[in-house]
Amino acid sequence: MTVEKKRVSVTANGQACSAEVEPRKLLVHYLRDDLGLTGTHVGCDTSQCGACSVMVDGDVVKSCTMLAVQADHSEITTVEGLGTAAELHPMQQSFWEEHGLQCGYCTPGVMIAAIGLLKENPNPTEEEIREGLEGVICRCTGYQFIVSAVQKAATRIQETGVNLNSQRLVGEGTQND
């Protein structure tokens, strides 16, 4: 039962990447195993936990719920496309300052989901943040410091005028296909 592999080409964090994959391969495994972007994690097998959240063409997507072939020609942003240790993205900086992470396993997905939230609602209330993080699960923090991190990031992004659509590698919106 050899299955013909398909070539999947994406722009991941601003870089053109390509690999041949089985049509059934999940996007998250393509990112992790083929592109080496291991910052995105898998926490469940039923699309509940959101640890695998990435941006595909500017939208937050659970990458365990999408096939790699469906992402062909898209622009993908993972945690590796936010900031670097020397120059953290405002979301990362806020998570650091507010202690928004403990084990750090859910964190990449949570930060991506939070950026998605701020794109839609740049100045959310505490309640809106809690509601807006419906798609992600953190087992360590009890969420309180995640909420304060997102609040701080919102303020910081507004103050510094960072454009979430153009900040480094966060997707520019659909332009392919």
Partner: peptide, 14 residues
Amino acid sequence: DARLLTGNGNFADD
């Protein structure tokens, strides 16, 4: 945190 925030953690599946 610097490594965990930037996707540079080293978990078993990595």
